[in-house]
Design a protein around this nucleic acid. Sequence first.
DNA 1: CGCTTCAATATGTATAGACATATTTGCGAA
DNA 2: TTCGCAAATATGTCTATACATATTGAAGCG
Lengths: 235, 235
Amino acid sequence: MTGPLHQRIRSDIEARIRSGEWAPGHRAPTEAELLAEYGCSRMTVNKAMTALVEAGLIVRRKRAGSFVARPKVHAPVLNIPDIQSEIVARGETYAFRLLARAVRTADRDAPEEVELAAGGKLLALEGVHDAGGRPFALERRLVSLKAAPEMEAADFARVPPGAWLLEHVAWTEAESRISAVNADADDARLLALDEGAACLVVDRRTWREGQHVTRVRQVFPGEAYDLVARFGPGA
Amino acid sequence: MTGPLHQRIRSDIEARIRSGEWAPGHRAPTEAELLAEYGCSRMTVNKAMTALVEAGLIVRRKRAGSFVARPKVHAPVLNIPDIQSEIVARGETYAFRLLARAVRTADRDAPEEVELAAGGKLLALEGVHDAGGRPFALERRLVSLKAAPEMEAADFARVPPGAWLLEHVAWTEAESRISAVNADADDARLLALDEGAACLVVDRRTWREGQHVTRVRQVFPGEAYDLVARFGPGA
DNA sequence: CGCTTCAATATGTATAGACATATTTGCGAA
DNA sequence: TTCGCAAATATGTCTATACATATTGAAGCG
């Protein structure tokens, strides 16, 4: 390691934790011991230890000391790439076919739609993402025109709705639910599958500053699509 | 905000980014400007800005300044809880039924098994996680006894294999693939489903220090299980 | 013996200054 | 005009010090 000293200290300690040399619960050296070992100031070892705390590898308690954390829940980073990028990265041609587009008011009997619309109108979109000329994913989306009014004029032949929103309504927060369903007759027809084929469904709701922006349901043929999540506990 | 000053500076800036007041590409104040505004030392504003860089909200370039990052790929944090904790949290009784257990050598025709075994033997496990007395997930697992030799003596009635590994082989890294399949005859029987029912499959491989530890395939009834991922871009 | 109090300890936050480093910008020379 | 070099600038790292704060462990007291 030739980089900054605080990084070297950090990776030295991280290596001992990941190798199991320091098991969970093991007491790590105090800052005083580390600064003596590395011959540096306290701020430098503090920076290293603080980073390890953020990474979830170390738990610190005043007076008691620093301890190797107990890995709890796996919190992997799931890669939900933009569908267009994903397809282009595979070297296939990409296209978005808009099947239906409507501007309407929220259905009063659907509380979720009412909340999404927030008193304004809704843009309802339905389309298919094609990869290499064949259906890759089916997308049904509701957009709050109150949250994204410019979207009413957008042309989705150029930029698909997801990418348009990412571009124009940045820094949103979202919650995705991933599940598996059997394709119904509509899904099967649009995705060129047999009815009943297993499909991966990503149901995503997106907010900005607490305001609901969009809700989308993407259906992928189960055999053609994998979501990949990589992780170390806390890394 | 009454907490530490660096945190207050951080959240002030974060709020302006998330609200859209500072769009992606916008140039944020320099450290000199911030320390004048907050009347603090440079180390303090630097700590705030460094945290925003780690969070992916800010990109900094020497001489040029600090800029609001362009949100790229959604990298949500996916919650893959331990199945046992998940079931217990729902208030249902949990049990793991071990259906098959074998110690064997790797199949020479399966390169993945050979790599996992790394010259040693493999422990093959098959079992069902029950929630409230009904099948919740089907698990088929291979464990490298070279990486986890103590596992040969473990009793999985007490602690299911996943939890056992988390406890004894901490700080692993993993990759999960999430897909959807139609239940085959075996899956359907063990999970008490109709054949062909859509199931969510999590395929996970786990390493420690580059050494392959285990590979597990968990099959969940599609109708009974959702994976939930929450995220803001880079948060 | 149990309770309270107090001091020692290790971390948490912050300062003011210093030098290093990368990058932009502008000036001067080919 | 264009290329290349040098100065200005903003961040990156580090030091030495100081005081705040939470927690532990031990001393003191009823």
